[in-house]
Simulated assay, not measured.
Amino acid sequence: MPGTRPVRRRPPAALAMSPEAAAAVLSPGALDALDAVCALGPHPVVDDFATPAARAALADAEVLVTGWGCPPLDAGVLAAAPALRAVVHTAGSVRGHVTDACWERGIEVSSAAAANALPVAEYTVAMILLSGKRVLERARDLRAARAPDDWLATPPDVGNYGRTVGILSASLIGRRVIELLRPYDLRVLLHDPYASDAEAAALGVRPVTLDALFAESDVVSVHTPLLPTTTGLVSGELLARMRPDAVLVNTARGAVVDQEALVGALRRGRIRAVLDVTDPDPLPPAHPLWDCDNVLITPHLAGSQGNELRRLADLAVEEVARWAAGDGFAHPVRRERLAFLA
């Protein structure tokens, strides 16, 4: 694995995730690399902590390598894992399985959220640029007409030169999107109540209010985590402030956007949207969003898939190696930051 460092010893470890997640993320090569930095032993992948096999795996594990489908690590589970000192997650959010009991015991936690942020940011930038050229709509029209396009008659509002992109939240993904947008002739705005003016200046963006972000942007890209304070944050009022033909891109969580208000704005033809997430997710077959021609809906594919899953495994191996060598995690999850994380 790239960057893997030698370790002084191989701490006992166990795998806790669904069998499907293990098969997708942990290739034979990844398992070999992981076994080189920790002692996995003969135990199977655990997705139910109540089984005898799970109890045997937990009995001496110092490190738990987790993934999608890992059950909650509550006090009862931790009682069966007296040596457990670290959790290394091969995906993004740890909210589903790292409980208060883990923090109270002082267990160190790492996440591959930084690795998973990369393909999401790449998808976002691609959609920003494609929407500026109206690629999907023009390809659809070309297929219907099957005749040459009069490119000199393209309206002057089509294109990416000088467009304004609004980033909602300087999260890991939001910051990566900002970084990837730097080579383009775009103006980038940011709204994040937790980012200082100095941080915005360092990112090369202009901080604005939430209202201004929606009113001034040709594209608004949503990167805020779903929290009680952000549920429905993108309201009908904000959508109404968007410029005619502006684009809303959401790769965060569907419930951050008022879905009913979004359907109304799309039906009126005021704005366009690119949605990799919806509420509910997936959408039921009869949902009105399917009938809106000005929205592109993709099946939650922006995050790591296919060969991108190798990046998650690589990061997990490196984190286990760092921890075993006494260097600490490069991507720690802090309890005090949970309120700001997805």
Results as ranks from 00 to 15, higher is better:
residue 120 V to E: 00
residue 335 R to V: 05
residue 122 E to T: 07
residue 315 L to K: 07
residue 267 R to D: 06
residue 216 E to I: 07
residue 166 G to P: 10
residue 147 A to Q: 12
residue 261 A to R: 00
residue 98 V to C: 06
residue 72 P to Y: 07
residue 285 P to S: 09
residue 148 P to T: 06
residue 77 V to I: 14
residue 175 R to S: 05
residue 309 L to D: 01
residue 167 I to P: 11
residue 117 A to S: 15
residue 17 M to W: 07
residue 19 P to A: 01
residue 142 L to Y: 14
residue 3 G to L: 15
residue 249 V to S: 02
residue 171 S to E: 12
residue 131 S to C: 13
residue 146 R to T: 02
residue 274 V to D: 02
residue 77 V to L: 11
residue 306 G to K: 11
residue 168 L to D: 00
residue 8 R to F: 12
residue 285 P to L: 09
residue 255 A to L: 06
residue 242 M to I: 01
residue 60 D to M: 08
residue 112 A to F: 06
residue 341 L to G: 04
residue 332 P to E: 02
residue 330 A to P: 01
residue 77 V to M: 14
residue 113 A to R: 14
residue 337 R to F: 11
residue 123 Y to E: 09
residue 274 V to K: 08
residue 262 L to S: 00
residue 39 A to M: 12
residue 250 N to D: 09
residue 81 A to R: 01
residue 159 G to E: 15
residue 180 L to I: 13
residue 23 A to K: 14
residue 3 G to P: 00
residue 40 L to W: 06
residue 165 V to C: 12
residue 66 T to S: 15
residue 280 P to H: 00
residue 334 R to Y: 13
residue 50 A to P: 02
residue 148 P to F: 10
residue 294 N to L: 02
residue 44 P to G: 03
residue 21 A to L: 03
residue 288 P to Y: 10
residue 40 L to R: 11
residue 51 T to Q: 04
residue 278 T to R: 09
residue 313 A to N: 04
residue 111 S to I: 07
residue 166 G to E: 05
residue 324 A to N: 01
residue 3 G to E: 14
residue 91 A to P: 05
residue 91 A to C: 14
residue 189 L to A: 03
residue 19 P to Y: 10
residue 267 R to L: 13
